[in-house]
Design a protein around this nucleic acid. Structure first.
Lengths: 144, 144
DNA sequence: TAAGATTGACGTTTCAATCTTG
DNA sequence: CAAGATTGAAACGTCAATCTTA
């Protein structure tokens, strides 16, 4: 059986993909223009910062990230090599690893946020009013 | 100056990114489960199929794609190696290349669509009503 | 000189295989 | 055996440099 999709639905789908790709591209470009690392690095730093003790287990970090990466180990490697993170063993689970935010990592997060926020404002928030935000939120919630 | 973004706006932004990532992941997974190539291949095949003569110049193809890739040459290489496309010189512009859909490429597009459509239905269309689609379309249009 | 496209070098992602502990 | 995480090999994407023609 071939699904019969209304033209409008397919158009909305295409628009969603295209819009989101464009948004991400613009934000990445803004970060790069300021000499900052990519968005996925911010994603890691922010989730660690938000967490109770500035650290998360590998799997928990993966679950919270906006841009879920299939293989976090490599990303963590690079960020650790830059001194932004540290890996520590988990006390009562010898398999696990805690990813810990370093002082330098926290500082980078603070430095990135204004640029990221300005970018969200310019490409997203400034183009929408409160009703738009409400509608968008409602619709996206149904897709979760 | 630090942009002051309302909490709701940031939440909507995060939701948008997360929802779209999840949607793409699910669709890719559905394609793969049927032994089909990734979505970006479909993107190429569809745009060629839609075009007047089953062919487009490199730059025109790039402009129409949903998942705009920075370097199409490599992608076209792989698809051509699979016999799905052919490259032909452009008559009156020695610089250009026409990317031409082969019979095999057209056949793959036809084979992929039902799977893709079912995937869009399952993860997107079936969860939304007409008002949702209309609202989403309206909001996304403002971001273009 | 600029536009259209390809290439080389490099970095990143992905998948499956692996290793270790529960 | 399952869960958590890392690793090797290969596929893929990216950027800058290049080549060719307008």
């Amino acid at each position: 059986m071939v699904a019969k999709l209304p033209e409008k639905t397919v158009a909305a789908w295409a628009r969603l993909i295209r819009a989101e790709q464009a948004l991400l591209d613009r934000v990445e470009a803004d970060l790069k223009a300021e000499g900052l690392p990519p968005l996925v690095w911010y994603d890691v730093l922010l989730e660690l910062r938000r967490s109770a003790e500035g650290r998360l287990r590998h799997r928990d970090l993966a679950a919270r990230m906006l841009l879920a990466k299939h293989n976090l180990s490599r990303l963590v490697d690079r960020m650790a090599a830059d001194g932004l993170l540290e890996r520590l063993p988990v006390e009562d689970d010898g398999r696990g690893a805690h990813i810990c935010l370093s002082r330098k990592g926290a500082e980078l997060q603070r430095r990135m946020w204004p640029v990221y926020a300005r970018s969200i404002a310019r490409h997203f928030a400034n183009r929408l009013d409160d009703d738009d935000i409400a509608d968008l939120t409602r619709v996206l919630a149904k897709l979760a």
